[in-house]
Design a protein around this nucleic acid. Structure first.
Length: 489
RNA sequence: GGCCCGUUGGUCUAGCGGUGAGGACGCCGCCCUCUCAAGGCGGAAAUCACGGGUUCGAAUCCCGUACGGGCUACCA
């Protein structure tokens, strides 16, 4: 593996893995794979208030479920660890010391509340809202005395006087220019000694030898600040690639009120990881002008930042569903049975033990359901009738089918025809039932629908003959008789 | 307010000076069919945000405007 390219995904464990974060991770991962680079996972847990271990675990398990594997990071370790920012305080302290030595920072004794007020005032009068540099002019010896006296201080980056505009080329958006005059001396280390985001990420990116920073464009405005830190630390800035946001249907940042936003939820609802990866990859990137079904292999061997789109994308749940259906249909029966089983078990339809004894039966069931479900959780209502002892017939189905003229006779004949079968299999069942309409002078559809309603309780079900076979002769006859009885004469 | 960024059918996108503006989801119709799906075929749907330029020629290049978004913290 070449080490020329190193990228990282650095989630902050303040929640589960978000759809947008997942896409960022996918792009980083695909980019690393495509270029023979290294993909680093780093946990940016510097916010003690909101970061939790549960969230770290959830993020890790979501990434794994998606099939996104990191080369360095939690669990697997690596040569540039640790990979949790809370364990890297010595790095930040070292970087601060270096900046103090090089006169790249200065202590700030301003009161935060006071600062906020000044900022408000500056903004109100139409001025620049940045820090007014009050403490920048304090004489170093005075500053040292105040620190020694125990006065609390934060550290601010001393933006060079003659730095000029900050210009960088973003791989997806092109050349970006930020006017130097708007760069204020931002805080790099807080009063409590902890590093701010813009400082910690840069220190880490330098130490971890990150060459390409691929992240959401909510960080675009942070980039010039970070470039200043890279420069102050005497390091070359990496290449940046800012991804546009993912929006909800209303054009606002995708959030809980738009529905499911965490990868975990999609997993629970029966989406396949490969479908989610495919969909997310396409939300802002395209292989060419016509391909929409792209497996991981194709993605990791063709991904390029140059083909990442600049505009924000609205998350289209329906297209994801469609794509999930495509992947679901492509599963082999045994694989389908495997992924479907947890849903069946959760619904209490069968136990793991029973499943082990009904492998073939489950695979047959899988083939029936495969081209009908877009999500795995949809199979439960679809197949429930095949597991339960008896079935309750839906009122509208009864009215629409069973109470139709000829239905009773059709059920009687069906019982006779099926009852006579030696071999109870889809083919034999089909020919038996197909002989009924002609014999009693009724439309084939009426027979099929009547039997369907009788065994499933509904006018909609998986294919009839196969369903009857899976149900078994005994229960089939039982249900048809029960339905027949309920219709009366 | 200031600074940035974006704008091709309802949605995701292709396009990178000359195309009938292509594909996909969704929608509609037809076919297939035991229901539902799946599949096949066809269709509607884009004045390429708007207004100016540049050019023989602009969705493509330039400048404005509008709309949307992001940042503007001792959050990340």
């Amino acid at each position: 593996m070449s080490d020329t390219i190193r990228v990282r995904f650095a989630p902050s464990p303040t929640g589960h893995l978000h759809i947008g974060g997942a896409r960022t991770a996918i792009y980083n991962w695909a980019f690393a794979r495509r270029n023979g680079g290294t993909f680093v996972l780093r946990i940016d847990d510097t916010d003690p208030e909101r970061s939790t271990e549960d969230n770290v675990n959830a993020i890790i398990s979501s990434l794994r479920w998606l099939g996104i594997e990191w080369d360095e990071g939690p669990i697997c370790g690596g040569a540039f660890g640790p990979y949790f920012q809370t364990q890297r305080t010595s790095s930040y302290e070292g970087a601060l010391a270096a900046l103090r030595d090089s006169d790249g920072v200065y202590p700030c004794f301003c009161d935060p509340a006071d600062l906020a007020a000044r900022r408000e005032q500056a903004r109100a009068s139409g001025g620049v809202a940045g820090y007014d540099r009050t403490c920048r002019t304090i004489d170093p010896s005075v500053a040292k005395a105040r620190i020694d006296a125990g006065e609390p201080q934060a550290w601010r980056l001393k933006v060079p006087e003659r730095r000029g505009d900050i210009v960088f080329t973003d791989v997806v958006r092109g050349k970006s220019t930020f006017n130097a005059s708007v760069m204020d001396d931002f805080v790099v280390v807080r009063t409590d000694g902890t590093p701010t985001y813009n400082f910690a990420t840069v220190v880490d990116d330098i130490e971890m030898r990150i060459t390409h920073v691929i992240r959401g464009d909510d960080h675009l405005s942070n980039t010039p600040r970070q470039i200043l830190v890279f420069e102050a630390l005497g390091a070359a800035a990496p290449t940046f690639a800012h991804l546009s946001m993912i929006w909800g249907p209303d054009g606002k940042r995708l959030s809980k009120r738009h529905g499911a936003t965490s990868v975990e939820t999609y997993r629970e609802r029966g989406y396949l990881p490969e479908a989610l990866v495919n969909y997310l990859a396409l939300l802002g990137w395209s292989l060419d002008d016509k391909t929409t079904v792209i497996d991981s292999e194709t993605l990791t061997s063709n991904f390029s930042l140059e083909r990442v789109s600049k505009n924000p994308a609205i998350f289209d749940a329906e297209k994801l569903e469609w794509l999930n259906g495509v992947y679901l249909r492509a599963l082999t029966p045994s694989r389908y049975a495997e992924v479907m089983l947890p849903y069946l078990m959760d619904a209490g339809l069968l136990t793991a033990d029973e499943a082990a004894h009904r492998q073939t039966w489950l695979e047959e069931l899988a083939t029936l359901v495969a081209e009908r479900a877009k999500r795995l959780d949809e199979v439960v209502p679809m197949v429930r009738f095949l597991f339960e002892e008896s079935v309750t017939i839906d009122d509208s189905a009864r009215a629409k089918v069973l109470e139709q003229e000829g239905a009773a006779g059709a059920l009687d004949s069906a019982v006779d025809a099926l009852g006579a079968l030696q071999e109870y299999a889809p083919q034999t069942i089909e020919s038996a039932l197909r002989s009924v309409p002609g014999a009693i002078g009724v439309k084939p559809k009426l027979v099929f629908q009547a039997v369907r309603v009788a065994i499933s309780g509904s006018t909609v079900s998986p294919p009839l003959f196969e369903s009857l076979a899976l149900l078994g002769k005994e229960r089939s006859l039982q249900r048809i008789r029960a339905a027949r009885t309920s219709v009366g004469s």
